[in-house]
Computed example of a mutant assay.
Amino acid sequence: MGQPPLETHPFAPFIRTLGRGQKGSRSLSQDEAFEAMGMILEGQVEPEQLGAFLMLIRVKEETPDEVAGFVRAVRWTIQLPENIPAVDLDWSSYAGKRRHLPWFLLSVLLLADQGVKVFMHGLKGRKDNRIYTPQALEFLGLPVSDSLAEAAQRLETHTFAYVNLERISPRLQQIIDLREILGLRSPVHTVSRMLNPFLAPHQMQGIFHPGYLAIHQGAAALLEQAHMAVIKGDGGEIEASPDSSCRVLSVNQQRCNEEEWPPLLATRELKPKSLELELLPQLWRGEIEHKYGTAAVINTLAVTLQMMQKQSRREDALAMATEWWQTRSKDLI
């Protein structure tokens, strides 16, 4: 008697769909992406399958439908605290900074100083030459919460909280860590940025590769995100570079918009020889002047204020951001 035919692994059809070649392959539907990511998160996928799946999507680039399906699946697995805080703004930080300091953190502090409840999530960091947000927060004396429950508790009495991805979804962190083995980023980087675990009505996104702007925008619309803006930020973080133009793609109640913001500064800023974190609190307290840093803070804040419907025109958003900067609580850090 011959050997019985081998059963096809349940995850194999997803790889087959993506990898049949130029004429036979296609992207996943949102429901297929949801099912595939669900199997990955539940450990129902072989390591070889996971690597093939991630790289097939990386080569063709993920679609808005795939990202939306992946995000929905991850959200389904996140253990939320019983008392979910009313967060105003979700802010992701997954890239790290190596050209300029993370000036965007001062933009976030301005929002928090004005009573906007901001939840931030991101990567703990890699062994490279970048400054990651947890490192900067520690330097500024701002706490990093150990869990979503701790962040929720903090947001009951404060206006800012941060949690590392590994505390939100350990499995996603494990997949991101495969970058050192695979040699490439994976779609999980996009998914992590869009998690918005507390479902804040406003969401800011930063990417490095311009081609991902429309992907983030489209996925946000599919996820019915009320208000979202995505920019090609400095280093891939949510920081609107003040010395170059900035494309802002946004979603406002299912309407997709695009606007080009001209640079605030007349000339390009040279990369500093070193990144000195002490400049952040010194600028905040008014102990030093820093033309680029101040412009980066104001520009990033203005994009956020426009996305949050605080102002509709760029000029008015910049004026409001400037006023917030000039009237900040200098003893906050």
Score class of each variant (00 low, 15 high):
244 S>F: 13
201 P>N: 12
194 M>K: 01
202 H>C: 11
254 Q>H: 11
200 A>Q: 02
194 M>H: 06
246 C>K: 07
231 I>R: 06
247 R>E: 15
210 P>D: 02
213 L>N: 07
208 F>L: 03
267 T>P: 12
215 I>R: 05
195 L>T: 08
199 L>Y: 09
219 A>L: 13
263 P>L: 10
255 R>N: 02
180 E>D: 14
234 D>P: 15
183 G>D: 00
254 Q>T: 13
176 I>Y: 02
220 A>P: 01
193 R>D: 11
258 E>N: 12
257 N>P: 01
202 H>A: 10
216 H>P: 02
245 S>I: 11
206 G>K: 10
242 P>K: 00
178 L>G: 03
255 R>M: 09
179 R>E: 00
231 I>M: 04
177 D>K: 05
214 A>F: 12
254 Q>M: 13
267 T>G: 12
216 H>V: 11
199 L>H: 09
224 E>A: 11
255 R>Y: 06
259 E>T: 00
271 K>L: 12
211 G>I: 07
215 I>V: 15
176 I>T: 00
272 P>Q: 04
266 A>Q: 14
208 F>V: 06
260 E>I: 06
253 Q>G: 06
203 Q>N: 02
271 K>G: 11
225 Q>Y: 05
202 H>N: 11
268 R>E: 01
205 Q>C: 13
207 I>D: 03
261 W>Y: 08
258 E>K: 09
191 V>F: 13
206 G>T: 09
189 H>K: 14
178 L>N: 07
261 W>H: 08
182 L>I: 05
178 L>K: 11
249 L>W: 15
215 I>P: 10
212 Y>W: 14
230 V>W: 10
262 P>R: 11
218 G>Y: 13
248 V>E: 08
265 L>V: 03
249 L>Q: 14
205 Q>R: 15
235 G>K: 06
227 H>K: 15
189 H>F: 14
230 V>L: 08
190 T>L: 04
187 P>V: 07
199 L>Q: 01
251 V>Y: 11
224 E>P: 02
214 A>W: 08
239 E>S: 09
251 V>D: 09
206 G>E: 07
188 V>T: 05
250 S>H: 07
265 L>I: 09
252 N>L: 11
177 D>C: 08
269 E>I: 13
179 R>I: 10
186 S>H: 00
215 I>Q: 10
254 Q>F: 15
238 I>K: 02
203 Q>M: 08
178 L>W: 09
259 E>P: 03
254 Q>W: 13
266 A>R: 14
225 Q>E: 02
235 G>P: 10
227 H>V: 12
177 D>Q: 09
211 G>P: 04
204 M>P: 04
221 A>K: 14
216 H>E: 10
269 E>D: 10
234 D>Y: 12
250 S>G: 02
188 V>P: 04
211 G>W: 01
178 L>H: 02
201 P>H: 10
255 R>H: 15
243 D>I: 05
209 H>D: 04
252 N>M: 09
189 H>G: 15
219 A>D: 11
242 P>I: 04
209 H>F: 08
203 Q>F: 06
259 E>S: 03
188 V>M: 03
243 D>G: 01
213 L>S: 05
190 T>G: 00
270 L>C: 08
195 L>Q: 03
223 L>N: 00
186 S>W: 08
259 E>K: 02
184 L>Q: 15
267 T>K: 14
236 G>A: 03
210 P>S: 05
